[in-house]
Amino acid sequence: MAPAPASGPGLATTVPAPRRVAFRRPGAAVIAGVAVLGTLVVIAVVAPLLIHDYVSINTGARLLPPGSEHWFGTDHLGRDIFDRTMVGSRNSLVVGACVALATTLLGVLFGLVAGYFRVVDSVLMRAMDGMMAIPGVLLAIALVSLLGGGLWTVIVAITVPEVPRTARLVRSVVLTLRELPFVTAAISVGTSTPKILLTHILPNAVGALTVQATYVCASAIIAEAVLSFLGVGTPPDIPSWGNVMAVGRQYFQLAPWIIGFPGVLLSVLVLAINTLGDSLRDRLDPHLARRSGL
């Protein structure tokens, strides 16, 4: 029964090697994703400063194919597709970024509250379920016709149907996390509920949230294109990839370049964002990071 000698300092003094010894080199996909996104962001910032005339109509230069004069060709009103696409990249990126940000903020707010407080949960989540039952595009069309056209209207109209999905995701993550012993431990050392939500639950949900935010960003850019395509997106004096493509739809057989160039850029951008989201998730997750030696 005699206890062993005191376990003073010295028994567990093997300090682990300094963390982040080897920084994991980003893969080719990540580098490509960063390059694409970076280039498009630069274009989005610079293009509107350099290109001023992207709305004037030139009937003498209708539906010209791509050439040295008009790199991406012209549309049915003789407007330069290159100019409109470059300027439009700003609006598409703004829509994507704003929707992702707004959706994440609202989704986190609703999700945290619903996941942690049982009473609010049933009310809030039924409301979210109700919204999810309405097709997103339909809801967006209704909102745009209610609020009138414009860039911010489009952002709101796309954000609203996206929120329930993010809220649901956050709620499910919170439901999993709140049962973990480290949350119980936080309660037992006297941490208040708001502090638990902000310092224990939220940081551990960041991985899932980041992926969701990039997904929302990508789908918002597409949604904006869809709305423009349907004629309820941004007005023609605010070019976006969506409304350039909407014009191209009517002349697809005559002038495929109108829909082709913004379409390719849209696909490349969405692919880049999704790639980055995936790799970001891997890096933000401490368990995956450990496995890969981050």
């Binding site: 012993p181 119980t184 431990a185 006297g190 502090k195 310092t199 401490p286």
Partner: peptide
């Protein structure tokens, strides 16, 4: 105060050891 069964799940993976031990003092 409680010492938990599972030393893997009872420490917040996103906090440093200092932050974990400090939390009750801050509270």
């Amino acid at each position: 105060q409680m010492v938990f069964q599972d030393p893997y799940a009872s420490l917040d993976p996103r906090m440093t050891v200092e932050a974990i031990v400090r939390e009750p003092l801050d509270n």
